[in-house]
């Protein structure tokens, strides 16, 4: 048990270090202006935007405080924050209050809706007609 515990600590520490390193890279450099940021491989091969396109620019804008600009690069970032925020608030509520709240993300309908949202987002952001161009990265 002791070995697995110290191993876990090493793994988590290195994840945090890598994560902070990446964040600082995205904080100081704008991916639009520098060639050393990787381009989306899916977009490079197919010329089609994937659901993740624009997330590097979005992260750069978000951690520099330009929340709206960041979200406009990739609206799915918003979905990620909603789900993560919801899960963490629920976790804290269930841990520190006596009532147990039902987790909506355990409902089959929730995950299905998220799947549909992601696939719709993927299709719509590739349509270059006016209302949908907003979704493009």
């Amino acid at each position: 048990m002791v070995v697995t515990k110290s191993k876990k600590i090493v793994i988590y520490t290195s994840i945090v270090i890598v994560f902070l390193g990446m964040l600082s890279l995205y904080f100081f450099w704008n991916p639009s202006n520098h060639a050393f940021f990787p381009k989306c491989p899916f977009y490079a091969f197919t010329g089609i935007f994937c659901p993740g396109c624009g997330s590097q620019r979005a992260i750069h804008k978000l951690i520099n405080g330009e929340i709206v600009e960041g979200i406009r690069h990739n609206y799915l970032i918003l979905l990620l924050f909603i789900v993560l925020g919801y899960q963490s608030i629920l976790f804290l509520l269930n841990k520190f209050t006596s009532t147990t709240y039902k987790n909506l993300t355990h409902k089959p309908i929730t995950t299905k809706v998220i799947l549909v949202i992601v696939i719709l987002f993927w299709i719509l952001r590739n349509i270059s007609v006016v209302p949908f161009t907003e979704l493009a990265p």
Binding site: F42, P51, G52, S55, L79, V83, I114, L115, V118
Partner: peptide, 25 residues
């Protein structure tokens, strides 16, 4: 692993994130 699935979809530019979401469903 819904959160992990969404993270891999958004940050990885690989449609394999979609597969994770399907399994989460």
């Amino acid at each position: 692993y819904l959160a992990l699935a969404i993270i891999s979809t958004i940050l990885c530019c690989l449609p394999s994130g979609i597969v994770s979401i399907i399994y989460a469903t």
